[in-house]
Amino acid sequence: MDNGYAIETEGLTKIYGSGNTEVVAMRDVTVKIRRGEVVALLGPSGSGKSTFLTAVGLINPPSAGRILIGGELVMDGPKALMETRSFRRRYIGFVFQKSNLIPFLSAIENVQIALEVNNWSASASRRRAMELLEYLGVSDRADQSPATLSGGQQQRVAVARALANQPSIILADEPTAALDGRLGRQVMELFRKLAHEQGTGVVVVTHDHRALDVFDTVYEMEDGVIRRSETDAMRTISSPVEDDQKERGAT
């Protein structure tokens, strides 16, 4: 079952609307993302990046194509082959550009809820949530409501929530837009560390070209079509993924 890939897509296509209003947001996207691989997704506005991310995140079924997660076929066209919600709960962590915290829960409760839906006890989830907030440097804001946090602080809480369940894949849509350069880079490095330590597959949509060196692979999208970035191909003479595999193979 486990073929070393965190995410595989085959011929993923998404068409919004129909007739005159038809928009092909994603066209025949086929990618393979290994466990432990950290992928950047670049592309102009409207090119289909979010569409790809939400499709892989199982919240936006594709019109055609297949999605495999951890080697398991999850989506066959628009049809889900398993209960997508429980799948998301266990294996997928999301971070989105707009802060997506629940306003009536405190910072720490926003992290806890992700654990509680996976049947963590209240005390254990609180302890784990606190660790994550500490890790992201916002533990002093743990009991504040999201509305009283700065954009960057909110984003870090959202990252903590995405990491809470040690997901197999992390999907982040411009997670660092609200963070300053140093913090943004810190979050990217956190993703990278996680990926390399736990074999998590990470896809990050970003516009921040300065941080591209953190990523193992860079893809670019345009008009719904995905391709490996040329700068990336030049940059990755020796692929960190392969390094990784060598390391893993050695142990």
Binding site: I59, S86, R90, I92, N100, I102, I113, V117, N118
Partner: peptide, 12 residues
């Protein structure tokens, strides 16, 4: 919006 978010993070 919050309910959608709860569903997103997998709340049953």
């Amino acid at each position: 919006h919050d309910i959608a978010l709860l569903k997103l993070i997998g709340a049953p």
